[in-house]
Structures are given as C-alpha cells and as structure tokens.
Amino acid sequence: MSDTETGLRTGRSSPDLGVIAVGIALITAAAVIYADAAQMSMAPLYAKIGPKVVPQIVAGGLALFGLLTVFGAFRGWFPAREEEDAAGAVWVAAGLGFTILSLILHFGFVAAMTALFACTSRAMGRRAFLVDAAIGAAIGLSVYLVFTKLLSLSLPQGPLESLL
C-alpha cells in the first residue's frame, strides 16, 4: 500500500489535515455500514452466507483504507493540493440546490434550468447574470419541448409549463 511513499514524499513536516479528514470520513462510513449489517435479523438459513457478509467485508476494507489514509497524512503520501476558490464551487452547488428546491415547490423545469445555467455560468467567472438567465431559459424551454413533445418523457411542470 506504500507505493507513493517512495516517489511522492514531499517532506511535509506537519500532517495534512484535509487527508486526515478524508480518512476519518472513510472510517465513519465503515462504521455506518457495519452497524447497518449488524442490525439485520437473519433467518438461520442465511446465517453464514447471508446479506451481512459482503457489507462486513466492505466495511472492513473501508476502515483499513481509512486508517492507512490517516497514517499517510502524517507520512506525506498525498500530493499537494492547489489553492481553491470556494465561491465558484458554492455557485454551482447553489444552482443545483435551487433545482432541488424548485422540484419541491413546483417552480417547473424551465425556471430550474434558468437558475442552474445562470448560476453555473456565474461560477465560472462570467458577470452577465440576466443575459445568462435568458440563455438558460431558452435552453430549458427547448429541452422541455423536445423531451415532452418529441420523446414523450415527462419533466416537472410549473406555472409556465402548464400553459404549453
């Protein structure tokens, strides 16, 4: 498991906190999977080879890799990361979040796509929100028409879509 040990050691003196967090997340996931398997009540028929076995193997693997990851954080196994600009990623996530919200509140497909397109474009550094919103609306509308009229797939309806 220590292949990067030789090649990529960066000589970092302090442990990589981000990598430690990844390792802990993996160990947590392993614990959740193990606990879920443990609470299954099994008929005796499945005692040996039932639905618990593979989750336990997977949980074991994730826990092992999680521990090795934490260990690797102290040994500098992971490559250095670039500086990041969280704002950009937040805009993308916000666009997708709005789409989920519009599904709950029945804003309709076109409204969701308008916001998603404009937010993503903003995330990539463009500052023409209204123009991009108009483009997003046009794309959303044409996709809606092609999907519902041509491919007979259904997409979520809102006030606008029910007029079409």
Binding site: M113, L116, T120, M124
Partner: peptide, 15 residues
C-alpha cells in the same frame, strides 16, 4: 465560452 459550456453541461446532467 467556458461559462456557457459548463452551464450547458449542468443543465444536461440535471435534465
């Protein structure tokens, strides 16, 4: 342009 490209990718992914 990249902003529109990724806007389009997100729209199609979600769609």
């Amino acid at each position: 342009p990249q902003p529109w490209l990724y806007g389009g990718i997100m729209v199609f992914a979600t769609m």
